[in-house]
Amino acid sequence: MIPLELYILLASAMFTIGLYGLVTQKNGIKLMMCIELLLNSANINLVAFSASQPNVNGQVFALFSIALAAAEAGVGFAILIALYRLYGTIDLDNINAMRW
């Protein structure tokens, strides 16, 4: 039985990496991947807590979350493809038409 702390550590590490990537990266795809990391770190937490105190609610939520992530990825990539068609790049530094 793996102790709960390790799961939380793993989740925290994934979350931090994701956040770091989100703030620093410029490539749209990388940003999508970072967002997946954030979501999945949360999923790990949900499943870990659910297993440690026998209660399936957490795992159910994790399933919802995965479904949500799939939808989000679909929309996100669609936007990126549209952006690419329009600008010829997905470097977000160049896509700033909505600035002041």
Partner: peptide
């Protein structure tokens, strides 16, 4: 001027 149009800045502000 806060509205830079750079997504990373927004994310930073959010965090």
């Amino acid at each position: 001027k806060v509205q830079t149009g750079i997504v990373q800045n927004y994310v930073t502000a959010l965090v």
